[in-house]
Design a protein around this nucleic acid. Structure first.
Length: 408
RNA sequence: GUGACCGUAGCUCAGUUUGGUUAGAGCGCCGGGUUGUGGUCCCGGAGGUCGCGGGUUCGAAGCCCGUCGGUCACCCCA
């Protein structure tokens, strides 16, 4: 073996790829049901889009970006997430009003790979741009929940929180910092650093959190507008029968979030990375990117992690027909295959000149419903059709083959 | 970036404890048994620089050192 896929990347081959295709098709359907339209955006952006959008202080920007210089001397970065690009694209159009965008595709982060964490990973997501309404938050959260449920992710729970906005968060952060400074002695090294750079992150530090059970929560320090918004989001979720848990310690790792923050967790997953999706509101992001104010809310779901939760029987895509050629009837078999394929019937055949027995075995392995034998009967305009499930076979006119394979 | 564990056939693994002659199994793959019939069964076959490099030794898959790769966890996040 001379070459391997780069560290942290996966080749998703059949039959496993069928699961992925299923999830992607299902995603398109659910996004469309809620009125989200597809957007196809660049896989790389000007580095500044992420540096400013996602936030200089974040782990993602500080150490996980695939940044490179192109031949024109521009600093570009492979997208580590989708939201900043969608907002950038919306601002670039100069349009007003609402955009409900759905996307799917690969994201890139330079990290040490482990279960559920790859350097190239796949997300599906939506962004609801142009609305501050709590109903938008609730709709987005519901969509993710319905899709994940339909996809079959087991042990799903929806965690929600509100982390305040530009009005109330600064005051809260002061309160939190005071609290944390009094407890410097029990904080780990990472948390001591975060105390200055991003104090809310200390709340979900696995090491420190147990010792900080009485820490002030963002939800207890919301301004009137944020509190009302959060109440409305939760009320709407209840109205739509979306089960959720309030998670006062839930803090997201990207700087642009404010107000609503939420996460979808696959509690059955025994690996460490059991968050299959996350999102929130980001009313300040457009301005961080130098644009006019555009409120928004959205989420991203990790397909790799969804797949980890699924235990699917993996089999190749079944065929309708496998053509077995006897003697030197290969040309006739190929012609029949061509006709059937034109008719929309999934057809395959051997091109290696293998034995009839080997061809039947191949038909079976490929899960073909029907085998056709092209032999001497062909001269009378007939072929043998065999139902591989029952083993029954008969000789019919070749013009009748398409109809015969569609008989059930 | 830190730590732990693991690298033997396409896949899953045995063999390493006590170094010893042509390195094994199951599954998969190919062929035959059925000169035009699969899924079961029987027979046969192909396929391995034992991750790589160096060292110790009469002799290394096995012991030592290094290196590369993988996995899981921390960190962080989807």
């Amino acid at each position: 073996m001379t070459f391997r896929a780069p560290k942290g990347t996966d080749d998703i081959l059949p039959p496993a790829s069928r699961t992925w295709r299923r999830l992607l098709l299902m995603w398109e359907d659910w996004a469309a049901r809620y009125g989200y339209d597809l957007v196809l955006l660049p896989f790389f952006e000007t580095t500044e889009v992420f540096a400013r959008g996602v936030g200089e202080s974040t782990e993602v920007v500080q150490k996980q970006m695939y940044t490179f210089e192109d031949k024109g001397g521009r600093s570009l970065t492979l997208r580590p997430e989708g939201t900043a690009s969608v907002v950038r694209a919306f601002l670039e159009t100069g349009a007003d009003g609402i955009l409900k965008a759905a996307y799917s595709g690969a994201m890139f982060r330079y990290e040490r790979p482990q279960a559920g964490r790859r350097r190239q990973f796949y997300q599906v997501g939506v962004e609801y741009l142009g609305s501050r309404a709590a109903a938008a938050d609730a709709e987005v959260i519901e969509l993710g929940y319905r899709y994940l449920t339909d996809a079959g992710v087991p042990g799903l729970s929806v965690l929600v929180n509100s982390i305040g906005d530009r009005v109330c968060r600064p005051a809260y952060l002061e309160v939190l910092k005071e609290y944390l400074k009094e407890r410097r002695a029990v904080l780990c090294d990472d948390s001591l650093t975060r105390l200055e750079s991003n104090p809310m992150r200390v709340l979900d530090c696995k090491v420190c959190a147990p010792r900080l059970s009485d820490a002030p929560s963002p939800v207890d320090h919301l301004c009137m507008e944020c509190a009302t918004h959060y109440d409305e989001v939760r009320a709407a979720l209840r109205d739509m029968d979306v089960p959720y848990e309030e998670a006062p310690r839930l803090v997201r790792g990207l700087d642009y979030y404010e107000r609503t923050a939420f996460e979808y967790v696959a509690t059955d997953l025994e690996t460490a990375q059991n968050a299959v999706g996350g999102g929130g509101r980001y009313d300040g992001l457009a301005e961080l990117l130098g644009g006019k104010p555009v409120p928004g809310v959205g989420f991203a779901l990790g397909l790799d992690r969804m797949v980890l939760t699924l235990f699917e029987v993996e089999e190749l895509e079944p065929l309708d027909v496998y053509i077995v050629v006897a003697g030197d009837r290969r040309g006739d078999g190929a012609k029949l295959a061509s006709n059937l394929r034109y008719e929309g019937i999934r057809t395959d055949l051997d091109v290696e000149g293998r034995s009839v027995k080997a061809q039947f075995r191949a038909a079976d392995r490929r899960g073909a419903a029907t085998a056709l034998v092209v032999g001497d009967e062909w001269d009378d305009g007939r072929v043998v059709v065999k139902d591989l499930a029952t083993g029954r076979q008969e000789v019919i006119l070749k013009e009748e083959v398409a109809a015969w394979t569609r008989r059930t």
